[in-house]
Write a protein that binds this DNA or RNA. Structure first.
Lengths: 147, 147
DNA sequence: GATGAAACGTTCAGAGC
DNA sequence: GCTCTGAACGTTTCATC
């Protein structure tokens, strides 16, 4: 899928996307132009979807994080999805197979805010809210090489 | 929490973390040194946790994504957590309140691989696997301003 | 894939609001 | 306190091999 050089480049960038091409080139043992070209190819191929920043919700005052499983009542699927999308505190939402229709991640500043947001969904769906206590894996990309 | 300038800087960086200070400065209407200083402060305060890349699992051959809820059998909690952490295809894992102990995101290349990974957990925990069909919200930061 | 020169961006000192 | 200007420094890009 990716050769060794590309894998190393991705690993380094994942830890520090602002590293200069020069330093990156030194670390992988190539010249800056070569690294630059590889980067472009990785972007073109869609492997690198974006260069972005990781924002810490806690630093913005979001003390609580919850995973909410949502099962819309008959005929309410569209309305529920729209409500989720329009509630900016929902920061991740997957539509899945099985009993639950949606599984979403919610950031809130307080239990009161959590209660308020869940209540707004309550007349359109059954919900199950699990408060996040710890994050054994915070977020990482899948393995680059073939497994 | 954050003033307007900082919010705009975060929004722009979130879409393109490699934008030059110069262009960023033009977009928000400040000079490069000012923007540079604000960036440093945002990093020091921990609002910007890291500059990173968003890697597309599909481009790496991961065609399937699942959310797995995991309830370890009595006495198996530590073993289950370790197993999850050591399985690189688990890319996100939250320890939560409620019936389920862990909720984890899994990327796999095939149903066969999914089956294999879930089977490895089967003797240590009850699991519930939901295949991701769509992502109404792919991932976004919580609102920057006070809600 | 490497080299070197030109173009570009960032950083620092000094100063002003 | 926060911001700007301008010059020095470092980085990226392009042509060439």
């Amino acid at each position: 899928m990716l050769n060794n050089m590309d894998q190393r480049i991705l690993e380094i960038l994942q830890g520090d996307a602002r590293i200069s091409l020069k330093d990156l080139a030194v670390q992988v043992g190539l010249s800056s132009p070569s690294v630059s070209e590889r980067l472009q190819r990785l972007e073109e191929r869609g492997v690198i979807r974006a260069f972005t920043i990781d924002i810490d919700p806690q630093a913005l005052g979001y003390q609580l994080q919850a995973i909410v499983r949502i099962r819309p009542l008959p005929g309410k699927l569209q309305a529920v999805q729209k409500l989720i999308e329009q509630t900016p505190e929902f920061c991740e939402c997957d539509k899945v197979t099985g009993e639950d229709c949606f599984i979403a991640r919610l950031f809130v500043r307080s239990i009161a805010q959590l209660d308020q947001i869940i209540d707004r969904i309550a007349d359109k769906a059954e919900t199950n809210t699990a408060i996040v206590k710890a994050q054994p894996i915070k977020r990482r990309p899948p393995p680059f090489g073939l497994t």
